[in-house]
Amino acid sequence: MALNTPQITPTKKITVRAIGEELPRGDYQRCPQCDMLFSLPEINSHQSAYCPRCQAKIRDGRDWSLTRLAAMAFTMLLLMPFAWGEPLLHIWLLGIRIDANVMQGIWQMTKQGDAITGSMVFFCVIGAPLILVTSIAYLWFGNRLGMNLRPVLLMLERLKEWVMLDIYLVGIGVASIKVQDYAHIQAGVGLFSFVALVILTTVTLSHLNVEELWERFYPQRPATRRDEKLRVCLGCHFTGYPDQRGRCPRCHIPLRLRRRHSLQKCWAALLASIVLLLPANLLPISIIYLNGGRQEDTILSGIMSLASSNIAVAGIVFIASILVPFTKVIVMFTLLLSIHFKCQQGLRTRILLLRMVTWIGRWSMLDLFVISLTMSLINRDQILAFTMGPAAFYFGAAVILTILAVEWLDSRLLWDAHESGNARFDD
């Protein structure tokens, strides 16, 4: 018995066209964080690309023209004298008006014999932002004059995390709450300039795509075929072959399989920071003279006294001054041990922890910024005066060393310790 099946006739004509040209192939790229070699397709503007294995951002879609970056830099340069030299806060102490600005706080630190601690604050609040705007201006002028731009481009990517104007702005709020127990506070004209400078700096850093600047100024022929001998440069993120001198053909720094002496430098910085954190938390970090009496505060006791007036601000200072430094030390110690013992479990967790400490590390400088600003506000000789204690130097040095330890660690070593050939990683 035959089955009668109805015929289905399409209502619209289906047209099949042959592909007349070869589909576009992607360029081969190595991930600078996990060293995976993959094919990167062509990316349009405002599109980002991520590593298929570790999800690290390979290409950032946010990109401004150099002219727009230069305009932002010149605007920031105009704001800087007002943000640093004009009063941020006014207080009335014992019937006398006192003005506080950024430069005055750094000068008070240096004047009291601790120039190293003052230079830490100076670099993060004044030096690094000033280098940022002058570097962008150098790129703008240098591109037109045919100057060598490689050193500036190499420095810009590392400079971003040292620009800490946003953290200093939080420190202004913390210092205001600490001082309000002794005097009446009012915002100064410099505060508005400083807030504007923070906003412009944040926007500029978020749109400063150094890798795209490398592509514009020093374009290189990408690798179009897969080759395990391809290496990625950690300076400019170019994937290719080393030249005859073993250097990256684009930025001219040595092109090595792994960062040289990464573990040794990381261990040295980490152990030194552990040693410095002990006096930083045991010795007094601030000293207040009130009517001839002397009151010393460690980091913890200062947080407890701050909690009596504002528990939320005390929580912020606790996280930045105690929780973050010790968390960074514990995480980095764990990561280094996992590399030495070739741990194969929990790779995803370790990668996330490394990215976390990379982002939060700079916030530990908050305590030094609060001390710097408070020193310029309260300084009335023996009637009422505020000065920093010996722990300030140890704390600042420990924070900087932990930042350097994270920067010096080559994250690809975590993958080397893991089993080879993993296309995915999980716990």
Rank of each mutant, 00 (worst) to 15 (best):
A2K: 09
L3F: 11
T5R: 13
T9F: 09
R17W: 10
G20N: 09
E21A: 07
R25P: 11
G26W: 10
R30G: 14
C31F: 00
P32S: 15
L37N: 11
Y50R: 07
R53P: 00
C54S: 00
Q55C: 11
D60W: 08
A70G: 14
A71T: 10
L77I: 11
L79H: 12
P87L: 05
L88H: 04
H90E: 06
I91R: 01
I91M: 04
L93D: 00
L94T: 02
I98L: 06
D99E: 09
I106S: 02
W107D: 15
G118E: 13
G118M: 02
S119Y: 02
V121C: 05
G127E: 05
P129Q: 04
I131T: 14
V133M: 09
T134W: 12
T134R: 00
L139I: 09
G142C: 10
N143H: 14
L145V: 14
R150W: 01
R150N: 07
P151E: 02
V152I: 07
M155E: 07
K160I: 06
K160W: 02
E161K: 05
W162F: 08
M164D: 08
Y168A: 14
L169E: 01
L169W: 05
L169N: 03
V170R: 00
I177Y: 07
I177P: 13
K178Q: 05
K178W: 00
V179T: 12
A183H: 10
F192Y: 13
S193T: 03
T201D: 03
L205W: 15
H207R: 09
E212K: 15
E215R: 14
F217K: 13
F217H: 11
Y218R: 08
P219G: 13
Q220H: 07
Q220G: 04
R221L: 08
R226I: 10
D227F: 06
E228G: 10
K229S: 08
V232C: 15
C233N: 00
L234R: 06
L234Q: 08
C236D: 05
F238S: 07
G246D: 08
C251E: 00
P254V: 15
R256T: 12
R260T: 03
S262L: 03
S262R: 02
L263Y: 06
K265W: 02
C266I: 02
C266V: 09
A268Q: 01
V275P: 03
L278Q: 11
P279T: 13
L282M: 08
P284V: 04
I285D: 01
S286F: 03
S286D: 00
I288R: 01
Y289C: 04
N291C: 11
G292I: 13
G293M: 12
R294D: 01
R294K: 09
S301V: 09
V313Y: 15
G315E: 06
I316P: 14
I319H: 09
P325G: 05
F326W: 15
V329F: 07
I330L: 14
I330G: 13
M332D: 04
T334V: 09
L337Q: 11
L337F: 14
S338C: 15
H340Q: 07
C343R: 14
Q345V: 11
R350C: 10
W359E: 11
I360H: 11
I360K: 01
W363M: 05
S364N: 00
M365V: 05
S372N: 13
S372L: 03
S372F: 06
T374S: 12
T374A: 07
L377W: 07
L377I: 03
I383L: 12
F386N: 00
T387Y: 06
M388K: 15
G389A: 03
P390W: 05
F395Y: 12
A397K: 03
L401D: 08
V406I: 09
W408A: 06
L409Y: 09
D410P: 02
H418G: 12
H418N: 09
R424C: 08
R424V: 12
D427I: 15
